[in-house]
């Protein structure tokens, strides 16, 4: 039964990805990307990677959907139709995918207790972390103590990125609010009929 659920979830992910590529309405694409990250979060839970699943749900389905909607509010809602077909991306994807699959050929099996990753530092974490660090959850000890500097660096990167995004978005919003009362049509720049900025619809 669990394998059936795996297969169905993977099929949903494939369908969502193909539809996202084919749709031209970017609003629908953003909504479908939320569904896609919910599906991948469920896949992570099925694979016992609960912490990764939680990050995926919070970041993928929560924050990044909101950020992409904010971007759509500042730009266009429709993707421009493509002029001609370019085969380079397909070739790049095929070559990269083939290289990745080739790389998995000599990997140990999923959950194999004799895999090298289970003999490097994992025994020390399992045996000594309750004494050396304290928390009963070993993942917490690894993240907060054994790899504390790594976690600090990650947090710094994410914090900087968040501040930068907020600065960028707030600058645009403040400028628009200053322009709006003088001239209601100030933001109404139509780009060759491809689509208009969404905020023109909210003008009084």
């Amino acid at each position: 039964m669990e394998q059936a659920i795996d297969i169905v979830l993977m099929a949903f992910m494939a369908v969502t990805a193909i539809v996202m590529i084919r749709l031209r309405n970017l609003y629908a694409v953003v909504m479908l990307s939320g569904i896609f990250s919910l599906l991948s979060a469920s896949m992570f839970v099925v694979l016992d990677a609960v912490d990764v699943a939680f990050t995926e749900a919070a970041v993928g389905a929560g924050i990044s959907t909101v950020l992409m909607l904010g971007t759509l509010a500042l730009t266009f809602r429709e993707e421009r139709p493509r002029r001609r077909r370019d085969l380079t991306p397909l070739a790049v994807v095929l070559v990269t995918g083939a290289a990745l699959i080739y790389g998995t050929l000599d990997m140990p099996h999923f959950g194999d207790p004799n895999a090298p990753i289970h003999h490097h530092v994992a025994p020390r974490y399992i045996e000594d972390s309750p004494v050396e660090v304290g928390p009963p959850n070993m993942v917490t000890s690894v993240l907060a103590s054994y790899r504390g500097y790594d976690t600090l660096g990650e947090t710094t990167v994410i914090f900087t990125a968040g501040v930068a995004v907020m600065v960028l978005l707030s600058g645009v919003w403040r400028r628009r609010r200053r322009v709006a009362p003088l001239d209601p049509d100030a933001g109404r720049v139509s780009a060759d009929g491809e689509g208009r900025p969404a905020h023109t619809e909210t003008d009084p």
Binding site: M31, V66, G70, A73, H199, T202
Partner: peptide, 10 residues
């Protein structure tokens, strides 16, 4: 959040 973005664009 999505509903607010649809209605107010912010």
């Amino acid at each position: 959040a999505v509903m607010k973005f649809v209605k107010y664009s912010s």
